[in-house]
Computed example of a mutant assay.
Amino acid sequence: MPYLENMLPGPARRAPAAFAHRGFSPAGHENSMAAFRAAVAMGYGYLETDVRTSADGVLMVFHDETLDRVTDGHGPLAQCTAGQLRQVRIGGVEPIPTLEELLAEWPDVKLNVDVKDKAGMPLLAELIEKYSAHDRVLVTSFSDRRRLGVFRTLTRPAASSGGVVSLTALAALGRLGLTRTLGRAARMQAVQVPVRYGRYPVVTPGFVRRCHRAGLAVHVWTINERTEMERLLDLGVDGLMTDRADLLADVMRERGFWPQRVRP
């Protein structure tokens, strides 16, 4: 999958991917164009984001079900039209972007898109087709049904990470030699997981080895401390997602993996 081949400029060499989780904004303006621009200007080539569907069928870049936590609006996003949502401000400052805006802004930046509602499945597929973005979008969701629903109308494959059910099965049964079988059955090329589920450790040396033998990339979320970034990179993971894009950029730079996007 081209999405997973994070090749740096210059002589061909592959690097672990750095994902700016909802962009980068010390002011807390997550999932805003300003936050994404800050991450891209810093050198990020991968942006993680979420999408929800407006009342009139537009994919909006937004994480929560309701507007209250991060905007000056109130109530469920799904009950508002795109026009109404454009009047809402993240942190009282930034408008809520559409996914189409994000796709159009940087044709060379790769997006990790978490589909938050059923209505978003065909809409995401339509945008991937419109922008020929199959090689620069990874589709994921906590719901395997939503995730797989996106692929029904795609004319060619896009990368994907499993939902809760498929990832739980892979983590639990991988030691039985079923990692490759489960990965193929769940139609995923990457596993995007936390370091642990509750008290159960997920990202162990054995887990990483099993995934790599099965051809699956391992992306870990959401890592905001330097020591943990260093430990996971030493373990051989293929990508890290972080709210501290500034800190992860420093860690990657020290390892010779930065920038991951060179501005034209």
Rank of each mutant, 00 (worst) to 15 (best):
D68F: 01
G256W: 08
N6G: 05
A119C: 08
M33F: 04
P122R: 12
G75D: 11
A27S: 14
V93Q: 15
R145N: 10
A27K: 13
Q84N: 02
M188A: 08
R180D: 10
T227M: 03
L247P: 11
E225H: 15
V251A: 12
T53L: 03
D50W: 10
A20H: 00
L240W: 04
F142A: 10
V165E: 09
I128N: 02
K110E: 02
I96N: 01
M42Q: 05
R37E: 15
L67G: 01
G45H: 12
A159V: 05
L167K: 14
R255Q: 03
L77M: 05
R210F: 02
R180T: 09
A171N: 05
V251Y: 12
E126I: 09
L216A: 00
D117I: 10
V51Q: 08
I90A: 06
V51F: 04
F151T: 03
V40R: 01
L102F: 02
E228C: 08
M33L: 15
D64M: 05
R255F: 13
R263W: 14
R52P: 12
G236C: 02
L123S: 09
D246A: 06
R184L: 13
L247G: 03
M188C: 12
W106H: 12
R14I: 13
V191C: 04
L77G: 03
G206R: 12
D50K: 10
